[in-house]
Amino acid sequence: MTPLHLCLLISTALFCIGLFGALARSNTILVLLGIELMLNAANINFIAFWRYGPSHGAANGMIFVLFSIAVAAAEAAVGLALIIAVYRHQKNIRLQEATVLKG
């Protein structure tokens, strides 16, 4: 069991936790946070492969994570704004009730 394997297992576990949260919870904020956890899990993978990957010298893994964090920030900002809008509309933030857009 190399450190890389361990890192990957940790990230897998974190991803699964985030996925479970997104799938199981009814609170929209928690769903959003679950997705943030999945993003973090991906970031961990980038860093793990950057640290233990075959090619050295390139900062690509770090740069990717940096952009990922920026996009995650944007996503969180827009997502939470949406949540507030949904709350204003239906007086709660239960995701299963936000079905106005159904076909």
Binding site: Q96, K102, G103
Partner: peptide, 10 residues
């Protein structure tokens, strides 16, 4: 397909 599109994000 419109039946499939339930609006249920989950």
């Amino acid at each position: 397909y419109s039946r499939k599109q339930t609006g249920e994000t989950h």
